[in-house]
């Protein structure tokens, strides 16, 4: 089972990285979402895998899974929604403003972003 979870994390990461490296905003957002899954599962798995022992205290039960990673991941899931929404909004604004949803904007020598020093 450990192998299943580890390989799932690996596959999610690989797919996420590949999509993040695409040239348009939408696949990049999908890639970030996949990476979010991967990271959340990775963090969650740091409490090790336990089946059938949720951290709900009950009389007579002694074994519980590690609750701390769960609490951390829970807020991470909600925050990642907020972050996804912001990124989507930014990409939407960029697309609507320029009619182009490319993520790359290579610097050309003449439109060098550096300000003059003086």
């Amino acid at each position: 089972m450990e192998l299943l979870v580890a390989s799932a994390i690996g596959i999610l990461t690989a797919a996420g990285l590949y999509l993040v490296l695409r040239l348009r905003t939408f696949p990049v957002i999908l890639g970030v979402s996949l990476l979010t899954y991967a990271v959340n599962v990775f963090l969650f798995a740091s409490g090790r895998l336990t089946v059938g022992a949720p951290p709900i205290l009950q009389k007579g039960v002694e074994t519980y899974t590690d609750p701390l990673p769960q609490a951390l991941v829970l807020t991470a899931i909600v925050i990642s929604f907020g972050m996804t929404a912001v990124v989507v909004m930014i990409s939407l604004g960029a697309y609507l403003g320029s009619d182009d949803d490319s993520v790359d904007d290579p610097l050309l020598p003449e439109k060098d972003g550096g300000r003059d020093v003086t």
């Binding site: 450990e2 580890a6 390989s7 994390i9 690996g10 990461t13 690989a14």
Partner: peptide, 14 residues
């Protein structure tokens, strides 16, 4: 790049 990253996280988590 994706596969190398994926293998890395997989190895680490396993």
């Amino acid at each position: 790049v994706g596969i190398v990253g994926g293998l890395g996280t997989m190895a680490l988590s396993y």
